[in-house]
């Protein structure tokens, strides 16, 4: 793919490679992508093809072995504090929810604002607002183990949104949900994404999920594949 094709790209990656075990495993092997601001992009491909690896690198959770990533014009190599960068720009949603078991729904959202200068009661108000919007008005004081998968994932969505990110990275967000919950969560997520003009990159196995994306990126063996390549 021509990475120069989007002058308004929010994320651009060139020749990304991610190796594990001294190069024995090549999770990513020469990936070029460009994501337009406000786009909903689905990343699909067989298990182990490198979807999570790509999202982790874009999310600064992992550094590429080689290659370059840019956020707007900023090269990732120049980011001094990746934690701060994540808080300012990126929200994460995972298949396994990754909520903190000892915190209730509200605190699981508010926890993402701890350490933000000037954070305080208005963050709690914002967290409540988000949870209400996601249909969890009656679940604020519930702990994760007392909530359904769909509810947990909505808490995770609220947490991803609390610091007003530009980019949401969702790694199989519906992977642990049944089809009804999956559809509901997806609708909530895409509604908020469109409403706020967020960019959403979502790794998924589910064709009914990727069907709703603006664009689909296919991957195979750590590389970007053509859509017509047959699945194994």
């Amino acid at each position: 793919m021509n990475t120069e094709s989007f002058p308004d790209a929010i994320v651009r990656a060139r020749a990304l490679a991610l190796h594990f075990d001294d190069g024995e495993t090549q999770a990513l092997d020469g990936v070029d992508i460009a994501i337009r601001a406000g786009e909903f992009v689905a990343v699909v491909g067989p298990s182990g093809c490198g979807k999570s690896s790509l999202l982790n690198i874009i999310g600064t959770l992992e550094a590429p072995t080689t290659g370059e990533v840019f956020f707007r014009a900023q090269p990732y190599g120049g980011i001094r504090d990746p934690s701060l960068f994540r808080r300012q720009h990126i929200g994460f949603i995972f298949q396994s929810f990754n909520l903190i078991p000892t915190l209730n729904a509200l605190d699981n959202v508010v926890v993402a604002t701890i350490g933000v200068p000037g954070a305080g009661s208005d963050q709690v108000a914002r967290a409540r607002e988000l949870l209400e919007k996601l249909g969890l008005r009656d679940r604020m004081a519930h702990f994760p183990n007392k909530m359904s998968g769909g509810e947990r994932q909505r808490v995770a969505i609220a947490r991803a949104l609390i610091n007003t990110p530009d980019l949401i990275l969702a790694d199989e967000p519906t992977g642990s949900l049944d089809s009804a919950n999956s559809a509901a969560v997806l609708t909530l997520l895409t509604d908020i994404q469109k409403e706020r003009g967020l960019t959403l990159i979502m790794a998924t196995h589910d064709p009914s999920v990727s069907a709703r994306a603006d664009r689909i990126i296919h991957m195979r063996d750590g590389k970007i594949a053509l859509p017509q390549d047959p699945a194994p």
Binding site: L61, S83, R86, A112, G115, N163
Partner: peptide
């Protein structure tokens, strides 16, 4: 460990973890 990973992911700075 995993929980600290979550906190780092949602943007906790290393000094906040230490605190």
């Amino acid at each position: 460990t995993r929980e600290i990973g979550i906190l780092l992911t949602v943007g906790w700075q290393r000094r906040t973890i230490m605190k």
